[in-house]
Design a protein around this nucleic acid. Structure first.
Length: 596
DNA sequence: ATGGAGACTTGACGTTAAAGCG
DNA sequence: CGCTTTAACGTCAAGTCTCCAT
């Protein structure tokens, strides 16, 4: 469970380095001063750090006006736009190929916000978006991106180096003696807001963020970041009860955006670890809680029965809590507590099953949740009751919201909230599935089992993805490869047979060697074929399922680390570099017998 | 209770860099 | 080695949950 080492560089400065930076040893420039364990540095007073120093954010590059020959046309006539109006126009022009720009709400919102940026002459002239012709601008940007692709190696290298320099200068901060990677040190550039699903605000102008909008957070005794020449920060504060380095208010929803540390940082890692520890505590008392809510289905009080049924859904189906949302501000999506009558259908009998509930609603990111499940009679009867005398658009759980539910959960277990059930059920499912599925086969087969276990979780959590545009083609390609490999295999087998016959006839050393060579070749091709087949299966099963989210947010990484250790699978096969950095704590901690 | 601000996690997706292939 | 394909990475929207004022 070693976390990091304290080292001294040639200037005599002490620096903490996470253990995965161990390549530094090879330079031989450092002295190890001290070894720090994971557990040894948490504050108990609610403060998140003692020292915080950073360089501030990187701003979006300023607008570059279009060259004179690229024109905007209104009502068929060329028209030179003021810089501000032109900039906003380019945002739209860049998206011309996108479906968004055909949507009514998008166009309406865009046009309204665009007009706000126009001069009064422009405003009086440009009154109809349908008369605007952005196609020349669109062509220009397409040509630009084409040119970028065609750049020479040297030019590309130069850009890469510049990015690297920016990363080195602005991408890190010092928090309590650790040099930490910042997650998002670049300020979001201006553009048109693209909401997901049927978003009422799609197309609105997301305005440019200036230094005057930024609140800087750092420690008093640090070197404060300097605003760009001629500008000022909105504020510099020293709040060590929060983890962010900078923040600003975004103009679409009026919400606050933050610059925070990378998932590999101490502060994020510890929080993540804590999250899984809470889920493990739930494991210890989940039976009690389940018995409790089953009892509550019989309660005399409506609010308690609603609470109990909702909790049952959250537990069984891994639904999200479902906070209320302000109507008209966001897309119409729901979670458990905000389910409406129109989102479920009850079937006393369906095929050979009794008491079936059909769910059909849009969840987070407007991803559809569709599921039919048989439930217990009591739940079914309760649901019928909840639906009585209600309109489709009425709340299913009218006596419940997330705050009531979470207050109840808090009483059942310290730190328990609705989302802990998702974490708990995801992690426990992975552990069970790994136990069930892991074969004593080859490494690729084991990894397929792992992916299948991961997939079971992704299905539980409804993590979907649009099938990749190139999916069909890439499946075909893979199939072609498999066919070829099969041909190769039969050819190799024939050759082996021939070699064997040859050896039988001559019994000399040379032919014996030839048999061995052919045998190895067959074996090698068999392995390659198997690998390809496994790959094809994996990919087909994964067509509409996204594994990433559950892997990154719901699965206790120690389960995976332990599994790797137990079966001798290199951790690199399961976690890529970024993931290994994020889960460094788990990789250090977990042994092969770890139990979630 | 209710509402809103604030902080932080979770989520899908587009772009880019790296892997894989002939 | 140069091209294509794939996975990693970054982006930023959209959730959850806490806290505090009313």
């Amino acid at each position: 469970s070693l976390k990091c080492i304290l080292i001294m560089n040639r200037q005599g400065n002490l620096i903490y380095f996470p253990l995965y930076h161990s390549f530094l040893f090879s330079h031989g420039l450092f002295f190890v001063v001290m070894v720090i364990r994971w557990e040894e540095e948490r504050y108990t007073d609610g403060s998140k750090w003692r020292f915080l120093e950073h360089k501030g954010p990187v701003f979006a590059p300023p607008y570059e006006p279009l060259p004179g020959n690229v024109k905007f046309y209104y009502d068929g006539k060329p028209m030179k736009l003021s810089a501000l109006a032109e900039e906003v126009a380019t945002f739209f022009a860049k998206m011309l190929d996108h479906e968004y720009t055909t949507k009514d709400i998008f166009r309406k919102n865009f046009f309204k916000d665009w007009r706000k940026e126009m001069t009064s002459e422009e405003k009086s002239k440009i009154t109809d978006l349908n008369k605007c012709n952005f196609s020349e601008m669109n062509e220009y940007f397409k040509a630009q991106s084409e040119a970028r692709k065609q750049m020479s190696k040297e030019e590309k290298q130069k850009i890469k180096e510049e990015n690297e320099r920016l990363l080195q200068e602005y991408g890190f901060c010092i928090m309590d003696n650790h040099k930490e990677r910042i997650g998002n040190f670049r300020i979001e550039p201006p553009g048109l807001f693209r909401g997901r699903g049927d978003h009422p605000k799609m197309g609105m102008l997301k305005r440019r963020i200036r230094p005057e909008d930024i609140i800087i957070n750092c420690s008093k005794d640090s070197k404060h970041p300097k605003p760009p020449p001629g500008t000022k920060w909105k504020e510099v504060r020293h709040d060590n009860k929060v983890t962010w380095l900078a923040s600003w208010t975004e103009n679409i929803q009026g919400s606050i955006k933050y610059i925070m540390l990378n998932p590999s940082s101490r502060i994020k890692g510890e929080k993540d670890w804590q999250k899984y520890e809470t889920a493990r505590r739930l494991k210890k008392c989940v039976d009690r809680i389940r018995n409790q809510y089953r009892d509550d289905w019989k309660s005399k009080e409506m609010r308690i029965r609603q609470r109990a049924v909702a909790l049952y859904f959250i537990d069984k189906l891994a639904l999200r809590a479902g906070n209320e949302k302000e109507e008209g501000e966001t897309a119409d999506t729901v979670g458990c507590c905000s389910l409406r009558v129109e989102h479920i259908k009850l079937y006393p009998k369906m095929d050979d099953q009794e008491y079936v509930v059909e769910f059909d609603f849009l969840g987070k990111d407007s991803i559809r949740y569709y599921n039919k499940i048989p439930v217990e009679k009591r739940v079914f009867k309760n649901l019928q009751l909840f639906l009585e005398n209600k309109q489709p658009e009425d709340d299913l759980f009218d006596r419940l919201n997330t705050s009531i539910l979470n207050k109840h959960l808090q009483e059942l277990m310290d730190g328990l909230t609705a989302k802990v059930f998702r974490t708990y059920n995801a992690s426990i499912t992975l552990q069970q599935q790994l136990k069930e599925l892991t074969s004593d086969d080859s490494i690729p087969a084991k990894i397929l089992s792992y992916n299948r276990a991961n997939r079971a979780v992704a299905i539980l959590c409804n993590h979907q993805r649009a099938p990749p545009k190139t999916f069909e083609k890439s499946m075909q390609n893979l199939q072609t490869k498999i066919d070829e490999k099969q041909n190769q295999l039969s050819a190799a087998r024939k050759q082996l047979k021939a070699a064997k016959a040859d050896h039988k006839a001559s019994h000399d050393e040379k032919s014996k060697k030839a048999v061995e060579v052919k045998r190895k070749a067959v074996q090698r091709i068999e392995e390659q074929l198997m690998k390809l087949q496994v790959q094809a299966t994996d990919r087909e099963e994964n067509k509409q399922i996204a594994l990433g989210t559950s892997k990154l947010n719901y699965l206790d990484p120690r389960i995976s680390v332990a599994w790797c250790k137990k079966y001798g699978i290199p951790i690199e096969k399961i976690y890529n570099k970024t993931q290994r950095e994020k889960f460094a704590w788990a990789i250090d901690m977990a042994e092969k017998d770890y139990e979630f």
